[in-house]
Nucleic acid binder design. Sequence first.
DNA 1: TTGAAAGCGATACCAC
DNA 2: GTGGTATCGCTTTCAA
Lengths: 336, 336
Amino acid sequence: MNPTIKDVANYANVSIATVSRILNSTSAGYSEKTRELVMEAIEQLGYKPNAVARGLKNTRTQTIGVLFPDISGMVSSELLHGIEKVTHNLGHSVIVCNTASQGKKTLDYLKLLSEKRVEGILFASEEIKDEYYEAIKGMNIPAVLVSTKSHKHPLPYVKVDDRDAAYTATSYLIEKGHKNIGMISGIKQDPIAGSPRIEGFQAAMRDQLGNDSPVVVSAQGFSYEHGVEMFEKLIKAAPHTTAIFAASDEMAIGAMASAYHMNIKVPDDISVVGYDNLKISEMAIPPLTTLSQPLREMGEKATELLFEALTDKNSTQSSIIMPHQMIERESVKAMA
Amino acid sequence: MNPTIKDVANYANVSIATVSRILNSTSAGYSEKTRELVMEAIEQLGYKPNAVARGLKNTRTQTIGVLFPDISGMVSSELLHGIEKVTHNLGHSVIVCNTASQGKKTLDYLKLLSEKRVEGILFASEEIKDEYYEAIKGMNIPAVLVSTKSHKHPLPYVKVDDRDAAYTATSYLIEKGHKNIGMISGIKQDPIAGSPRIEGFQAAMRDQLGNDSPVVVSAQGFSYEHGVEMFEKLIKAAPHTTAIFAASDEMAIGAMASAYHMNIKVPDDISVVGYDNLKISEMAIPPLTTLSQPLREMGEKATELLFEALTDKNSTQSSIIMPHQMIERESVKAMA
DNA sequence: TTGAAAGCGATACCAC
DNA sequence: GTGGTATCGCTTTCAA
């Protein structure tokens, strides 16, 4: 069907070895004249080297695998954008996997990627279970975590410091003069987006306000719906709250919608700050003040880290803590 | 490094042919006893068949390529979700490509996918230029379009009927008693999301209101920012407008934000309907009434179509028009 | 039921 | 500078 290197060789009246050399612009083992001849043949035949055969021969498939818990989520999308970009710039391809946070699917995907002989793995936004780690280790290829980390397993990661970031966001609210600050947390057991953010919040409240038990309500997830639900709960539990720190932009926006329906004005009656700085935070009314994670850059950095490990067999494989930053918009009001 | 079929054969004291048969549960050419023996060997060695070698042997790589103009866009994300799901269910993988709407990148990706010997192509949300078509045709593999179509080239597609959908959305507004309806269009030259939606709008205005030249403002894109910009322009041009049809949810939400800042109330002073039914439309304040495209299902259907062509060499390869639907929320008010 | 061997399309070593 | 050929890991006839 597709012309092979052999066809090219025949057409140009040279050996396949020569064609191969020219294809790989290797050790100049050919004259300019034959090069032109071969190029002409390639052009005429519409020859495209078979990457599968190449991959078999040199065990380098030029593709990496990326695992997301929710591929259509806005966080995943941004990460993927960064990942795809540098992967492609480096001449590789990315195979995407949507684990739906299910162990079985994750293991399935890992097996598949292993069979496909991808050269590296990027694992995003989710906790690495022991089985995952074993599977990855068994593949003998580099892997890096993005927007997640593992306390237990020695895999390099790229993420912001969630505790610090939550501390920053809370401090921002305190600086604005708020004292009755409540937090809307996602899943509190979540070792990445759950407990560290709660701890950061609590630490800031303790350090700066001497408040040892600020109110925190936790949901079963980080979505918009969880935000609306938790806002009601929080207001019921602590009616004097003047500011809220939400563990995700989606929750923050859910909280604002909930406030709107309860006829509570943001930011006049209550201030809210989110976490992530997704595109939707600019689109909210009022535009959401939020703690920004540089998601796209995180995707890029993680990919670069992966390729370093791929290129330099004994690279340091250090992790990277990305800088976070408050983005001031209009959902926070300074207290009188 | 990785154990091969040969290692398994040695370990189990059988030939590689036998191992292969067992691996593929082919024509029962082996006894139950040797099967167990081989399975045991596979287990012990942690053997994983090399998909690259397989792919070379039978020219079936079990992977497809998907091209998006903007991989982190919300429309793309939803499509991708549906695509990835059925692809994985069918035991294949998807390689994602972000063309950024650039001809050179698109051609580059097509070439790459061709070299990687993907078995099929899914092309999303963008116009097929002649060069793209030629490149795809040259690959000799099936391709299907999602959320786009080509008038010029015979490629099957899966999409809603944009003209009909715009007609429906406009009719909805008319039914609600609106007469001064304006449209915020995206790029008007866009043969998919541009002109057809404008035409649908105009047709409804003409058919049902006898209005032959309703006001339409067009932007250079379909984003939130374009929406805020166009809302101002529209209001300036036609101050009596009571309802707006926006060509995308993002634009609709931009328009609402703009209205908010101009102290124009939605839906009391002006009604707005969007297009797409993205997750953000539920999150808007007020929740956006919009014309829904079943994006995820479109991704699924397109993938199914692709695999039909892959399986059944001479399948019909028909296109599919997906149903659209008005989703009523709170951004439209009936006229007195 | 099982094994030997050809071949998929490249790469790279070894001669010439 | 160029060609012959073994090899990558697997599938699949063809014989036994």
